[in-house]
């Protein structure tokens, strides 16, 4: 579209204040802004800043191009807005609505200013419509990226959180595994367990797999690797919590766990660990009764 022929930039520039007032009024009315944790003053500031940047950029171009430097400032502003709204709890469509809701006040202004020139009005309407659509979609894209970053960070945190190594007794550690074991998670699990063995000077570790839904060849290999690494460091592992189906699977898959001590329950494993450390549990009441 020919820039010289377009009436849009001049009209937006000239009526910037009226458009802003109308836009803010509409936004406050719609209640959309209340969805997240947003202050009214912040909404006003952001709206004003956006209109200012838009009016300024329109003087140069009316076609949005994310890679073009002319749009850099507006793009930067929208990215920031999208990220902050994402953390304030807005949905992507609510973020995009911020941009889309500007259509109505601008359309209104264009209709007044170009009442006698239907062709110019149609052109300007088309331009602003296309432009605001593009900008709205851009906020959605940024929002999604921000969300993905949050998710991948949470995944990493979850991996770390989900590998608690607990001390059952001085010198005896337990690692209750919960959920599916993939190779990335297993590496974290292995490292955590081995580091805790060194830090606590524990020579026995019980790996409890009660909470692991399935054991396939890969998971079994990971477990065996952990056991081997612990042995190289001078510690023994006992695997506990092997459910009947898992025992069957292990045999059907032809996985050899004969080099590892296995126990059905965590308490059996604990008893074995105590025995290996030369400790025993006795009942004090039984002794009293004779």
């Amino acid at each position: 579209m020919n820039r010289l022929a377009s009436r849009l930039p001049a009209i937006v520039e000239q009526h910037q204040r009226e458009i802003l007032a109308e836009w803010v009024r509409l936004q406050l009315e719609s209640g959309n802004w209340r969805a997240g944790r947003l202050q009214e003053s912040q909404l006003r500031d952001e709206s004003q800043k956006f209109i200012g940047l838009l009016a300024g950029t329109l003087q140069n171009t009316v076609q949005f191009d994310a890679r073009n430097a002319q749009w850099a400032e507006l793009r930067e502003f929208l990215s920031e807005l999208s990220r902050s709204r994402a953390t304030q709890g807005f949905s992507p469509s609510q973020v995009a609505t911020f941009v889309f809701s500007l259509k109505q006040p601008i359309f209104g202004r264009l209709r007044l200013a170009l009442a006698k020139e239907p062709e110019a009005l149609a052109d300007a309407m088309w331009e602003i419509n296309t432009l605001l659509d593009a900008l709205g979609l851009y906020t959605t894209e940024v929002y999604q990226q921000a969300r993905e970053a949050v998710i991948s960070r949470q995944q990493e945190e979850l991996i770390e959180l989900s590998t608690p190594v607990v001390e059952l007794w001085p010198g005896i550690l337990a690692l209750p595994l919960i959920g599916t074991l993939d190779s990335e998670r297993t590496q974290v699990v292995m490292e955590t367990l081995l580091q805790r063995l060194v830090a606590t000077g524990s020579s026995i570790a019980v790996i409890d797999i009660t909470g692991v839904p399935t054991v396939d060849t890969l998971v079994a290999q990971h477990l065996l690797k952990t056991v081997s690494a612990a042995q190289l460091m001078g510690a023994d592992c006992i695997i506990s919590g092997i459910r009947p189906q898992i025992a069957q699977t292990i045999v059907h898959l032809g996985i050899d766990l004969s080099a590892v001590a296995t126990k059905a329950s965590l308490s059996d494993a604990f008893a074995l660990a105590l025995k290996r450390r030369g400790l025993a549990v006795t009942s004090s009441t039984a002794a009293a009764r004779g």
């Binding site: 490292e191 060194v198 020579s203 081997s228 190289l232 460091m233 001078g234």
Partner: peptide, 23 residues
């Protein structure tokens, strides 16, 4: 033996047979 060293040895397929180890 450090944990990272032990993990690498396992990956390498080296089990140090005949050697006793302690923490």
């Amino acid at each position: 033996m450090q944990p990272a060293v032990a993990i690498t040895l396992v990956e390498l397929g080296l089990s140090l047979p005949g050697i006793r180890t302690a923490l």
